[in-house]
Computed example of a mutant assay.
Amino acid sequence: MSATDTSIHLYWATGCTSCLRIKEFLERNNTSFVSHNVIQKDGSTDADAESTVGIQGVDPEIMDEMAELGLPQHVPIVRRGEEWADGKDLENVAELVGIDYDAEPLPVEELYRRLTVLLETTQEYLELLPDDELETHIPNRPRSYADLVQHIYSLPDVFMMHEAGVPMTGVPRMEHHWDHNSKIALRTYGSSVQGRLDDWFESAGQTCDWSETADVFWGQPTKHAFFERTTWHTGQHVRQLEWVLEEVLNIELEEPLDSALWEDLPMPEKVWNDN
């Protein structure tokens, strides 16, 4: 371990959507990197590390290494020598590693339309999840199917909290005073998020300055870029939920997600990390 090493290092976690996206981004641009998966190979959990990185089961040795190098205690992080960039910010990563990057988000109304479809689809998929499978974990990461559904709803919730004046100063902890392993509770939360999102767009959203800088911990995106991230991030997890239903639980879907939903969104090509 050396901060003077000019190799590109990627700190990531299995099952992390932003990690998969940045891995694909580097690979697509023929950029070699040293891989550091912060998830413990034996699947055990370190509670102290969990509280910093926001992911269960992390490897304390890698987290200690990141701390010694002065890196944030969350993933994904891309490092080159003493400089680093948050992997959620493709523009900053591109500048760090020398990749040409120029992308414009879809119009806000189109992002809102797609996000609405994704939230409605999640409600439909939730009803198909067997009650006795809610606490089953997704592949290679200690996150249950119920956690996955709750996380999907929390992404637009975090965006609305930001617009209500709550800065996103770190990995969000969505605390709720109910048992989120209950389908009724999850359904209620999802309906609340969708309703508040609709209300916001019909009121404050009409005068929102989307070119303003969002107050987030991982970079300086515009609110437009932040909302784009909210949409594609939600979409990636809905894809994962669909995969669980079809490939793991062998549930046949009447109307699978339309691939047109992903067009022109900067999301991963794959549903899961291969390794």
Rank of each mutant, 00 (worst) to 15 (best):
K88S: 10
I99A: 07
H137T: 07
Q236S: 13
Q236L: 05
R21N: 08
L197G: 01
E247G: 02
R239A: 04
A103K: 12
S259M: 03
E124A: 12
L115V: 02
V53F: 10
D215Q: 13
D215I: 00
V166Y: 09
G98Q: 07
P107E: 03
D5I: 06
L26I: 01
F217L: 03
T122S: 11
E269G: 05
R196D: 12
N140Q: 14
R113T: 11
T222L: 13
P139T: 04
I22T: 15
E263V: 08
G87V: 07
D199N: 01
L119K: 09
D100P: 04
L118P: 09
R141V: 07
D198R: 12
C208M: 15
W200H: 14
D179L: 05
T17K: 06
S32L: 11
P156S: 02
H36G: 01
D274T: 10
P72G: 05
P156V: 04
L245Q: 07
G15M: 11
V34Q: 12
G15N: 10
D46P: 01
E269M: 02
V53H: 09
G87C: 11
Y11I: 06
V158C: 03
Q194L: 15
V248R: 12
S144T: 14
N140H: 15
I55D: 00
V97K: 06
W272A: 03
E247N: 13
D209N: 15
L197S: 05
A146Y: 03
L119R: 12
H224E: 11
Q236E: 15
F159E: 08
I99C: 05
D100C: 00
E120W: 02
A204T: 09
S44G: 14
D64N: 12
G205T: 03
L71W: 10
Q56A: 15
D48P: 00
A214I: 03
G87T: 08
A47S: 14
A94R: 08
T17G: 12
G87K: 09
G57N: 10
P266H: 01
N37V: 06
D64F: 00
T207C: 08
P76Y: 05
L128W: 05
L249D: 04
E255Y: 07
I39Q: 10
D258L: 06
V216D: 04
R28S: 12
N275W: 10
L261Q: 05
V193W: 01
Q150R: 12
H180F: 13
